[in-house]
Design a protein around this nucleic acid. Structure first.
Lengths: 157, 157
DNA sequence: GATTAGATACTCGGATAACGGCTGTCCGAGTATAAGGGG
DNA sequence: CCCCTTATACTCGGACAGCCGTTATCCGAGTATCTAATC
């Protein structure tokens, strides 16, 4: 899995508590990560329609939808790509004892098992929204999001 | 995910129906895949204790345990490695507004969500055994495993 | 015919290159802002 | 005092290298089998 997923999720949580656009460079120095690379992830999120980019001098990124309607799965798929990790090569149709194509209407047992597991993984990620994450952060570390919100609108040191 | 997982699973299903050791080269040409690379995957399975290697002229690989006691998760972890796909970098402890370490006793909400999803994925794979896969293949394509078994002990064309 | 020594051929095992994708970086296009001059 | 033009500085967006993991491959160590000679 791409490591940028973690950055993207944290940025989405931060964007939950700000109303003004937050620049990518500011988010980068907040998390102490590479600004250019974080920009790439934010571009992916913007392309997926999860966040909206505002250009100009006071521009930046804001959430495109309600935090409760953005799931963790949305972010993961936007950054890592929607294609599943396991892809069946249909090797049962290859080799000297290949099974005839007319007997391969349904996916094989291995492909079904893998697909089911990924489906369970996907459902678990779909069940959690960005709002849930923000609520949890606010409960374990009260005032953190508010402090970040005020820090974001301050001029850099 | 590593593509060799599919090969390893198919090989395990094939090994279910043979009592004599099956050489890696024979399994490779049965599935029409690279012999050398398949050997690597089988080595991983052997190192994990799932299959047992028999050396010598009539050597090869056989299942080390009962097919019902080998889960798909065992094979996936043996080939792909046991380390989870998502690793928390603890970026909440970095940057100008880093949360103090004494407040980071428990994993953050993001890490917990990801861990929960991977746990669900893992449980789904643990619920299916190699015996289940073989039974399914035998029902959808009767006689296939028996044919493979006889073909494996024949001399190569 | 049984036994034993040897040669053989086949097996796995680990060490070694080539490719693709993730990681990291850069500069150009575009725009809201701010300043400044004029009415 | 208000408005318009201009310059500015800041933003995103896509195009460009570097590194690590997966893919693919090879040859050497080791052993059960087969052969053949001997008793």
């Amino acid at each position: 899995m791409s490591g940028g997923v973690e950055w993207a999720l944290h940025c989405c949580v931060v964007l939950t508590s700000v109303d003004e656009p937050a620049p990518a460079a500011r988010l980068a120095q907040l998390h102490d990560v590479s600004p250019s690379y974080l920009a790439k992830q934010l571009q992916a999120l913007s392309g997926a329609g999860l966040i909206r980019s505002v250009q100009g001098k006071a521009g930046g990124y804001i959430l495109a939808r309600s935090p409760g309607s953005i799931t963790v799965l949305d972010v993961v798929e936007a950054v890592d790509g929607p294609s599943p990790a396991f892809v069946c090569t249909e090797i049962r149709q290859r080799g000297p004892l290949a099974t005839p194509p007319e007997a391969c209407t349904a996916p094989c047992a291995i492909a079904r098992t893998m697909a089911g597991a990924e489906q369970a993984w996907r459902e678990a990620l779909r069940a959690v929204s960005i709002a849930d994450l923000a609520r949890d952060v606010g409960s374990t570390n009260p005032g953190a999001l508010a402090g970040i919100s005020t820090w974001l609108r301050q001029a850099q040191a």
